[in-house]
Amino acid sequence: MSTALSLHQSRKRKNGVMMALCVVAAGIGLAWLALILGALIYKGLSGVSLAVFTQMTPPPGDAGGLLNAIYGSIVMTIIGIVVGTPIGVLAGTYMAEYGRFSKLTTVVRFINDILLSAPSIIVGLFVYELMVRPMGHFSAIAGAVALSILVIPVVVRTTEDMLNLVPNALREAGTAIGAPRWVVIRSVAWRAAMSGIVTGILLAVARISGETAPLLFTALNNQFWSSNLNAPMASLPVTIFQFALSPYEEWQQLAWTGALIITLTVLGLSIFARSLTGRREDR
């Protein structure tokens, strides 16, 4: 009797210990998030002023802003999205609509999943070999192409997943009234999957707006205002990288402020993107 009881107690105790460890693990996860965000806000917020958004990056030891870096980031992100999104959406459409059961789709899905998690610095090297070396100089357009290569797998994945969720009855209804396949895809399938596809694009924006590695040796950096796509262009992540590793206090402060701007943008985009699909799940 007493052994049975002690076995029961030891099992209960073990359960209690392991479950407590799981709670601790969750606590650690949340604590890291709080620590990182806390440090960012504490160090970044003190540097936020109008000058950050109106002045150029300063020379060492001077005060200044991040205007050219913010502008460069926005320009390259937009071009990256504009180039990458149509390719991603079309490829995802092929995989979910025309070639749902074809061999090609299986292969593309596998390769796309690998591209999705491939190191972004490899993409930087690829674009360097593809564009920077033949052109002979770094350029904003090369940076934008590198970003678009990161956009494609994200958009392909979400487009395919979302189109697969569209009920076939909707497509059959379209076909039954005599619409050709591509009209059914365009006005039925795409429309039904629209919020999911938009979520994918927003997640892609969130991903590339913080990417540093693929820009390091494609767009390089630029101390000055430049809107020339054929010349090196500053970007927020690369500027943060350069300024954070510098010995100058003003530069380090600007790096923290830039980091805060990027993080808020990225977190805002991901929360917004998730709320778009979250509503669908609840319905």
Binding site: L30, L33, L35, S270
Partner: peptide, 24 residues
């Protein structure tokens, strides 16, 4: 909310972890 918070950790750009790691 907790699941989402953990996933937000995944969305933070790596350069943020870098600057936090170096200075904090």
């Amino acid at each position: 909310p907790i699941g989402m918070a953990v996933e937000l950790l995944a969305g933070i750009p790596s350069i943020i972890y870098g600057i936090w790691g170096l200075f904090v």
